[in-house]
Design a protein around this nucleic acid. Sequence first.
DNA 1: ATGACTTACCCGGTAAGA
Length: 260
Amino acid sequence: MKIASYNVNGINGRLPVLLRWLEEEQPDVVALQELKAPDEKFPLKALNDAGYNALWHGQKAWNGVAVLAKQGLDLEEVGRGLPGDPLDLQSRYIETMVNGIRICCLYLPNGNPAPGPKFDYKLAWFKRLNTKAKKLVKLTSPVILIGDFNVIPTEQDVAKPESWVKDALFFPESRAAYQLLLKQGWTDSLRLLFPDEKVFTFWDYFRNAFARNSGIRIDHILLNPALKKRLLSGGIDRQVRGWEKTSDHAPVWIELKDKK
DNA sequence: ATGACTTACCCGGTAAGA
């Protein structure tokens, strides 16, 4: 089973790109972030026609997450939003089950400018995620934490570390929170598969960053111990970043061994 | 470089992204 994550940066604005990628790569499950669309504007028909069922948690103009699963797979919602904030106004988390695998799709706050209230919100949201993740990692059933974490974990995950030191994505507090998460027992699947390489999932629109491969790795697929042993392969569909009217992120994916 | 790009909003300037 092939499971992918893609920050689409506007699901309606990027719909042709999303559909082309689904057609070419045929992922079984997709976690989407940054829908930038309210629930009623989610392009369900186009996705159905492309062979996918969907569950989504949208919001006007910003944020928004969804899980797609190929028709024929069993897709069910477990819940949306994280505990710990009574208002929880931003649509950044949706949890689903797909054929027995718990898919937890998240879009962690960016947090810039840092320091400041947005950075405080990022760290608070991260703390809520880690509280939730601590329970999930212990499950004996398979669990995936997948999405745009807006964290550059280490210097290996950025082309030019010095140009990101004043950015919320690379602040010590953000990196520390991600390390705390891993310490719970999660496996960063792409880093496990590419231990010595610089691989990126985001290149900004400025300064011709993609052509210069001046990227960062911020989209992550974390596996609990029950799933780690089923990891076969993975990669980044970086060609998608070179398409017309594309997102500033590229899709990232893993392939899992089918359960006996 | 409170820069540069790109998009959603409502209808041209602001907010947000990373």
